[in-house]
């Protein structure tokens, strides 16, 4: 499993929406366009494959995401400095 697969559905959706907005509003440089389109495809593929992971993979993946989320939540309130 790739590290990038750990992106949550929500994150993926939000990022996709952002990309669409950027492109729709023409805020994006044509030079960056292919990069964004590529990213959108990757995000969409991650989601689609995640929806179809086997239960074992799914449980593992989801529990890992949970763990990360929890760790994040735990570490977030404390500023490192």
């Amino acid at each position: 499993m790739n590290k990038k697969d750990h992106i949550s559905y929500k994150q993926a959706l939000e990022e996709l929406e952002k990309i669409v907005d950027e492109i729709e509003n023409g805020e994006i440089d044509v030079d960056l366009l292919s990069e964004k389109v590529k990213r959108a495809t990757v995000l969409s593929q991650i989601c689609k494959s995640k929806l179809r992971k086997t239960q074992e993979e799914l449980d593992k993946l989801l529990s890992e995401v949970e763990k990360e989320d929890n760790e994040q939540q735990e570490t977030e309130p404390e500023p490192s400095s």
Binding site: E17, I19, L33, S44
Partner: peptide, 21 residues
């Protein structure tokens, strides 16, 4: 519904990109 949403967004990306191009 979620997958459709993702697919539509991806299509939008392609459509808007084409338009932008």
């Amino acid at each position: 519904l979620f997958e459709t949403q993702i697919e539509e967004l991806q299509n939008s990306v392609i459509r808007y990109s084409d338009r932008l191009l």
